[in-house]
Design a protein around this nucleic acid. Structure first.
Length: 312
DNA sequence: AAGTCGGGGGC
DNA sequence: GCCCCAGACTT
């Protein structure tokens, strides 16, 4: 959950998750719906799938006990170089250094290392810290200390250098501009994207939905008829083409994801006849409980609350 | 090495 | 509006 997600955001999800799925066994046996529902709103939904895959692997191949070495951990689904090293160091006190955003920032400033993040830089950081990890019971302490230092003192903006235990030997501070490190990664230019979607309702208060594939964006989530295009008009034309008729247009809204600047164009349509190819009629009451694409779930809830789906 | 994949905190 | 967040995985 903590991969690319702030601690304050994760805490409520983590607590709810452990109440419903307290162990590997429960997670391994859980339904996809429950897993997705517990993850709803956290983003990066492939993490949820990999976490369940991890639970099943731990149960089937390791008898319910996660391995303790970084090498073994790194082979498991969802555990990359960072998480494998973090579990090895923090849970099992192995001499490993997980390099997250916090530790990268602390070490880049300490050595005034202006290079962009890379495998070579990671390796350099590990060699730098390795001697400090040798003492018994040290990895668990030092790793968490460096993370906390980065989160609370050596912050991205306005670092509190006066409170820093490393201030005597910090090269970035000596240069006078610690906030210049680490080097920023070149941001991908956000691209405009227009997504038109339609709540098609029939006389039985059903809406048209389909389930997205397990790969790609919003894996396994449900969605109404939906098309995307670089332009607004283009996306609306494609939607009408998909539906075979002209839906009523509602007010567009903005909600971005990853590197796209997305304008969402909602529509509604009184739709009689059989479902579109690949879609199903779902009772509105049930649809509101399904794992819809989160931004669309929000819109459907608001629409249902305003009762604009039934009226014409 | 660069793209993909969400959503929110905090300024 | 922007930067960043206890990154992993594919291409």
């Amino acid at each position: 959950m903590l991969q690319q997600t702030q601690v304050v955001t994760v805490v409520p999800y983590f607590e709810r998750w452990l109440r419903e799925l307290p162990g590997w066994r429960e997670l391994a046996r859980a339904s996809e719906e429950q897993v997705l529902r517990l993850w709803e709103g956290l983003g990066y939904y492939h993490r949820a799938r990999r976490l369940q895959l991890l639970a099943q692997t731990v149960m089937e191949r390791f008898g319910g006990e996660i391995p303790s070495s970084r090498e073994e951990l790194e082979k498991l689904p969802g555990l990359g170089p960072y998480t494998a090293a973090a579990v090895a160091a923090i849970a099992f006190n192995q001499p490993e250094l997980p390099i997250d955003g916090n530790i990268r920032r602390v070490l880049a400033r300490f050595g005034a290392d202006g290079a962009k993040a890379s495998r070579a830089q990671d390796e350099h950081f590990r060699q730098l810290v390795a001697p400090e990890l040798r003492a018994p019971d040290r990895p668990r302490q030092l790793v968490q200390a460096l993370m906390e230092l980065g989160a609370l003192v050596c912050k991205p903006r306005q670092p509190e250098c006066r409170a820093c235990p490393l201030r005597q030997n910090c090269r970035a501070l000596a240069q006078g501009h610690p906030e210049r490190y680490p080097a920023k990664k070149v941001a991908l230019a956000p691209r405009p994207l227009h997504i038109s979607f339609c709540w098609a309702v029939n006389d039985d208060s059903c809406v048209l939905l389909r389930q997205r594939p397990e790969k790609g964006r919003f894996p396994g989530h449900f969605e109404p008829p939906l098309v995307e295009a670089p332009g607004a008009r283009e996306s609306q034309n494609l939607l009408a083409e998909l539906l075979g008729s002209q839906p009523r247009t509602l007010a567009p809204f903005r909600r971005d994801f990853t590197t796209y600047r997305v304008t969402w164009h909602p529509h509604v349509l009184e739709f009689s006849g059989g479902p579109l190819d690949g879609y199903e009629w779902v009772f509105l009451e049930l649809a509101l409980k399904l794992n819809l694409v989160p931004v669309l779930a929000r819109h459907l809830r608001e629409l249902a609350a305003s009762r604009r789906l039934q009226s014409r």
